[in-house]
Design a protein around this nucleic acid. Structure first.
Length: 489
RNA sequence: GCCGGGGUGGCUGAGCGGCGAGGCGGCGGGCUGCAGACCCGUUGAACAGGGGUUCAAAUCCCCUCCCCGGCUCCA
C-alpha cells in the first residue's frame, strides 16, 4: 500500500513517490526565535514528527531538516525586525534573544517527545550562502538592487502564484503601503539594507543589511537537501507569502522544477475557539502546557484531529485526550501483565490473533491515507474493545499471540510517540518494592475482609500519587503523573 | 474585494457515491466486598439551507447563509 499525501500544489491527495527510492528529503519551517514556543509550534512539530515516524516505519530513510530562523522577518508596519523588537523588549542583544528562545524551543521539542531532525540549521550561520544566492538571482535577472535593498522581481517568474493560487494582478491591492522603490508591489525583499547602528546586520555587496524573509529556507533547503526535495512542510498560514516566495526564488535560482514534490501544510490551532495572539493574551506557552498536561496528553490532543484540520485547544479537548491516553495505557499494561504460555492456541486466542493482524493492517491503511490519525485511532480503540472483551478474566496468553499484540501496540506507541517507557523521578527500584510490599499486605487484609483498612490504604496511596486497581487478575498499581496517566505496574 | 479551507448526533471527530467510524458524555445492565477499570445493551429521525445529477448523495454539480485562514508579522 503506497502512502498518499495531500499536496497543496495540486490540492489533491497524491501517491507519494520519493525522488530517490527509499529516501525522503524533507524540509519543515521551524520557528522564528524571538519569543517562547507555544501550542501552535507544538502542533506543527508533532504533525511532521509523526510524518517522519510513519515514513520510517514504512521503510524510508528520512533526511529531515527543520530550520531555526534567527535573523530577518521585517515587521512592515513598524519597519523593524522581529528579533530587534524582542531584543528591545527584553533589553538584550538580538542574538541573546535568539539564543534564549532557540534553547527554549529545543527543550520543548525534546520534552514533547519529538525525534530530533537530522539537521536544525540556523539562518545566522548561512549569511554567506544567502548572499551568494541573492547575487546569483540578481545575475540571472530575477533580482534588482535599489539603495542597498535587493528585491525579487515577481514579473520575471512566470509561475508566480502557482502554489497559493494568488494572482499577480490581485497583489496590486495591499494592506500595507509597499516600498515605493519596488518595481511591482508584489516584489519581495531578498536582502534589506540596515542603517548605521542597527544591531543585527552583515556586510554584503550591497552594503550592510540583513536577509529578507524566505531566503533562508531556500538556502538551507538547497544546501542540506539538494535543489529538489520530496516534502516541504509548515503551517497553512505559510503558504502565502512564505512558501510561494521560497518556491519562486529557489526555482529561479536552480532553474529546476519542481523545487518541492509535495507541499504538506498543517492546520492552525485556536484557543477556546479564538485565534491565538498576543493582543488577546491567550497564547499558551508550550513548556507550561507540557508541565501541566504531560507530553502524552498533548500529543494525543494533536493527533486526535487530522493534521490538515484546524484544532481547538480547550479544557474538554484535553480531558478527552487524557482519557484516550489512559485507555491505551491500560491495555498496554493489561497485556504486559499476562503470563506468556507455550501451548496451542485456543479459540479465543485464534480470534485475538486475527483481530490483532486485522487491526494492524487497518491502522496502516489509515495512516497511509494522508496520515489519517483520527481514523487510525478509531481502529485502535475498536481493537482495544475487542481485546478487552476477548481476554476478560484471563491472566495468561499464548506466547506468540502475546508477542503479536505487544508488537502492534509497540508500533502504535512508536509511531505516535506516546507512552514511551521511562522512569519517573520517583519511580526507583526501592519505591517499587515498597509499594509492592504494601499491596501484598493489603491483599492479606482483603482476604480477611478487613475492608476498612484495605480501603484506607488504597485511598491514601492515591493521595501520594499511586493508583491501585483491584482487577479479576489481581491488584495493579501505577504512579500517577501530572496528567493522571502512567503505567500500571 | 480576491484566494483557500470548512459547516456531520449533547461535545469531539472520521467518512468524500451504496450496510449510522471511533472517543467523551447520558441511560440501563453485567462483573466487583466497595471503588476504579472493563464488558454488553441503549438512546440518539446526525450530516448548515435550498435546488439539481443518479437506481442510490453527508459524499458529485449549482445557488444561498454562516465560520476560519491568507492577501507581505505568525507554527
Amino acid at each position: 500500500m503506497p502512502i498518499r499525501l495531500f499536496n497543496t500544489m495540486t490540492r489533491r491527495k497524491e501517491v507519494f513517490e520519493s525522488i530517490e527510492p527509499k529516501v525522503v528529503r524533507m524540509y519543515v519551517c521551524g520557528p522564528t526565535v524571538y519569543d517562547s514556543p507555544h501550542l501552535g509550534h507544538g502542533r506543527a512539530s508533532v504533525v511532521y514528527d509523526i510524518l517522519v515516524r510513519w515514513l520510517k516505519y514504512r521503510g524510508y530513510r528520512v533526511k529531515y531538516v527543520r530550520n531555526i530562523t534567527d535573523v530577518g522577518h521585517i515587521l512592515e508596519d513598524i519597519g523593524e525586525d522581529r528579533m530587534i523588537v524582542g531584543a528591545k523588549r527584553e533589553r538584550l542583544h538580538p542574538m541573546e534573544i535568539a539564543d534564549k528562545y532557540t534553547l527554549e524551543y529545543l527543550e520543548a521539542m525534546d520534552k514533547l517527545g519529538n525525534e530530533r531532525p537530522s539537521i536544525q540549521p540556523r539562518a545566522s550561520g548561512h549569511i554567506m550562502e544567502i548572499i551568494e544566492m541573492v547575487e546569483k538571482l540578481v545575475e540571472k535577472g530575477y533580482g534588482y538592487v535599489v539603495d542597498g535593498n535587493v528585491y525579487f522581481d515577481v514579473s520575471k517568474f512566470e509561475d508566480y502564484g502557482k502554489l497559493s493560487g494568488v494572482k499577480r494582478e490581485e497583489l496590486i491591492k495591499h494592506r500595507v503601503e509597499p516600498d515605493p522603490r519596488k518595481r511591482n508591489p508584489a516584489d519581495f525583499a531578498l536582502w534589506k539594507a540596515a542603517p548605521e547602528g542597527y544591531p543585527l546586520r552583515w556586510r554584503s555587496p550591497w552594503g550592510y543589511g540583513f536577509p529578507g524573509w524566505h531566503i533562508e529556507c531556500s538556502v538551507m533547503s538547497v544546501k542540506y537537501l539538494g535543489e529538489q526535495i520530496d516534502i516541504h512542510g509548515g503551517a497553512r498560514e505559510l503558504v502565502f507569502p512564505h512558501h510561494e516566495n521560497s518556491l519562486a526564488q529557489t526555482e529561479a535560482y536552480t532553474g529546476k522544477k519542481p523545487f518541492v514534490r509535495y507541499w504538506v501544510h498543517c492546520g492552525l490551532l485556536t484557543i477556546n475557539g479564538e485565534k491565538m495572539s498576543k493582543s488577546k493574551g491567550n497564547v499558551v506557552n508550550l513548556l507550561s502546557a507540557l508541565e501541566k498536561w504531560g507530553k502524552d496528553v498533548l500529543r494525543m490532543f494533536y493527533i486526535s484531529a487530522h493534521y490538515r484540520s484546524d484544532i481547538d485547544f480547550n479544557e474538554n479537548a484535553v480531558k478527552m485526550a487524557a482519557e484516550n491516553v489512559r485507555r491505551i495505557s491500560d491495555v498496554v499494561e493489561r497485556v504486559r501483565s499476562m503470563k506468556p504460555v507455550d501451548r496451542p492456541l485456543d479459540e479465543v486466542e485464534r480470534k485475538l490473533l486475527e483481530a490483532t493482524r486485522r487491526a494492524r493492517a487497518e491502522f496502516e491503511e489509515r495512516m497511509d491515507d494522508d496520515l489519517d490519525t483520527p481514523g487510525a485511532l478509531a481502529v485502535l480503540f475498536g481493537y482495544i474493545r475487542e481485546f478487552n472483551r476477548l481476554t476478560s478474566g484471563r491472566d495468561a496468553l499464548n506466547a506468540e499471540v502475546k508477542k503479536e499484540v505487544i508488537g502492534f501496540l509497540d508500533m502504535v506507541r512508536r509511531v505516535f510517540g506516546i507512552l514511551e517507557t521511562r522512569k519517573t523521578e520517583v519511580s526507583t527500584e526501592l519505591v517499587e518494592k515498597l509499594i509492592s510490599l504494601i499491596v501484598e499486605v493489603r491483599e492479606i487484609l482483603r482476604r480477611e475482609k478487613r475492608y476498612d483498612l484495605s480501603d484506607m490504604i488504597r485511598s491514601r496511596l492515591r493521595e501520594v500519587g499511586v493508583e491501585l486497581q483491584d482487577t479479576a487478575e489481581g491488584p495493579r498499581w501505577r504512579l500517577l503523573e501530572r496528567s493522571g496517566i502512567g503505567f500500571l505496574k
